[in-house]
């Protein structure tokens, strides 16, 4: 996010302020969705975690970060597919739980550090 803002600033775009406020709002919503639906399993691996982070630690053996919030390799589509299909004991999330807009915000949040 910080990076995006700097680029926009340098280019001096008139709309930079609005676009960035919109992005910020999306990321804030995305983080909120994450904290409602995901963090209980995908956290920093505390003893009471539901074990998503531990599972990814074992799956990737350090090749990728185990905490989803640190990943930079997943596309929004891939994240959406996992959330809607489920994987192993992670069940699918329904539209009454995470609506389409919330899903977009969640994906934006989890891809915020992806390389361009």
């Amino acid at each position: 996010m910080a990076q995006t803002r700097i680029v926009l600033f340098v280019l001096g775009l008139g709309l930079a302020g609005t676009a960035s406020a919109q992005d910020d709002a999306d990321l804030a919503t995305g983080e909120q969705v994450y904290n409602t639906w995901c963090v209980h399993c995908h956290d920093d691996n505390r003893p009471w975690s539901g074990g998503g982070t531990q599972a990814l630690e074992v799956k990737y053996q350090g090749e990728l970060p185990a905490d989803l919030r640190e990943r930079t390799d997943m596309s929004a589509d891939l994240i959406t597919a996992y959330v809607r299909d489920g994987l192993y004991r992670m069940p699918p999330f329904r539209l009454t739980e995470i609506g389409e807009e919330d899903m977009r915000a969640l994906a934006a949040y989890l891809t915020r550090n992806n390389p361009e």
Binding site: H40, C41, P47, W48, S49, G50, G51, G52, Q54, A55, L56, V58, K59, Y88, R89
Partner: peptide, 28 residues
């Protein structure tokens, strides 16, 4: 455990998910 104190979590899922002791988990 948190549940013994009436505190919410999803901790019980941990046992069934992939872990060093359970590298090949089932789906349910």
């Amino acid at each position: 455990e948190m549940v013994h104190l009436g505190m919410p979590s999803l901790a019980r899922f941990r046992g069934g998910n992939r872990s060093p002791r359970n590298p090949d988990p089932d789906w349910g």
